[in-house]
Structure formats: structure tokens, C-alpha cells
Design a protein around this nucleic acid. Structure first.
Lengths: 110, 110
DNA sequence: GTGAACTACCTAGCATTGCTGAGTACTGGT
DNA sequence: ACCAGTACTCAGCAATGCTAGGTAGTTCAC
């Protein structure tokens, strides 16, 4: 059994990564670090890299290899037009869900 | 590819069903109907039944067969102690996620 | 009385997603 | 030489929701 958060992250993580990239290009290691800083300390590195490969194949992001001063070359991702659309869609879906969930939570108090 | 909502529902649906049951016992068909009324019109019947069987096996809910006036006998589910704990945990996890997601959304506006 | 529609439940197989646990490779400090 | 930190990849697994069917009982129109 995965943890509660693991299951809730399904579908959400893609949106979060796209949102991070909407803020500017970034490479995988950096994105993982940002997620950890946000409080998602349990997000596995491998998960993020796998996700990045998926969204690159779907043309949601563009990738470019860049040399790094301290380590192997980085793969820098930036949000593509299709990814921007997908991100907007994500926020809509998220709001839809969040509204109803909040209602359920409030309503359940009675 | 599943829809955005489908992926977001992963993990959330269990919490929603537990929340509905926290409001009082209900049977599968009724729970499905309530979810549809809430706006989740695309939630498949089979999904809900499968979920109910899962959470019954995990002792999150108790099940009892009841005769129905208009159709086959119903299986009425009610929240068990373990389910109540799980529901509380769910809301905590949900709030954790929602807070950070909202922050990401706001922050991304700059 | 036959068929449609609604009530009520179940199942096998699939697609997607995140995690585990490993490996590769480059740099810098000790 | 060794280890930590940077940076990426991959195979196999676990959990979840959907598809697409099936079974059964009741009610009502035709």
C-alpha cells in the first residue's frame, strides 16, 4: 500500500511540475529540489525524471542539453505551448475538484 | 490516456466515499448517485463498487445486506472506526496538498 | 406478456501513475 | 583512493480508476 499522499499525487504531480516550469526553465534535479523545498520531501527522484520523459514525449515541454559546472550535463526543460494549455486545463480540473472536496468537508461537519 | 480528472481522482475517490459515509450509511448505487449529483458525472459505477469492496476488506467500512423495495437486495455500508481514522488522515493529507497547490497557483501568477 | 427502463451489484482485463532499487557519470574535498 | 554531491536513466512493482461486459429484480407502457 502506498501512502495517502502517494495516491493523491497521482495526476497532481504532472500539474505541479508544469507549474514549476511555467515559472521558468529548469532541469530535473532542480525541479526535484524545489518540490522538496515545498514540503514534498518524499517525492522520489526517479519519479520526477520519468515524468519529465513522459511529458517531453507528449510535447508538453521542450528539452535542451546544457553543460554543468559541477556534474554531468543537465537536461533543461521549458514549457511548450501544448504544456501551457495542459497546465491551464489542470488548474481548471483542480479547482473543480477542490471546490467539491471543500464542500464535502464542510458539509460533513453537521 | 485517461482524462485529467480521472488521474486526479486517484486516491481522492476513496476519501470522498468515506466522507459520504461519514454522513450516514448508504449503499453503492446511492453513493454513485450522490457523486454524480456533486458533479462527478463521469465516475463509473464499476469503479465505486470495486472501491467499496476494497475498503470493506480493509475494514474501513462495515457491510450489511438489506432487502430493497425496487430491485435486488442492497449492500449497505457504514463507516467503521478504522475508516474514521483513515478519513481524518485523508483530510490532513488533502489539506497539505491543497495548501501547497494553491501557493503554486498564486505564485505562478507573477 | 414483452420489452424498455430503472434499480442494484459484480467481474476480468487494461492504462496510467508513482515508488523501489538499482546503475551510470562527472566534480570536488579529505 | 574515497566519499559526498550533482545529474540522469531504467526495469519491475503496487495501487487506482475505467472499459465493457454480465446478472437480477421491479415497474410501467405498448
Amino acid at each position: 500500500m502506498g501512502s495517502q499522499l502517494t495516491e493523491l499525487l497521482k495526476g497532481t504531480l504532472e500539474g505541479m511540475v508544469l507549474a514549476v516550469l511555467a515559472d521558468g526553465p529548469a532541469h530535473g534535479y532542480e525541479i526535484t529540489a524545489r518540490l522538496r523545498d515545498m514540503g514534498f520531501s518524499e517525492v522520489a527522484e526517479g519519479t520526477v525524471y520519468a515524468l519529465l520523459i513522459r511529458i517531453e514525449q507528449r510535447r508538453l515541454v521542450d528539452a535542451e542539453k546544457m553543460p554543468s559546472a559541477k556534474g554531468p550535463p543537465r537536461k533543461v526543460y521549458s514549457l511548450a505551448a501544448e504544456g501551457r494549455r495542459r497546465l491551464d486545463e489542470f488548474w481548471q480540473t483542480w479547482n473543480f475538484l477542490a471546490e467539491r472536496l471543500d464542500q464535502l468537508h464542510e458539509g460533513g461537519m453537521t
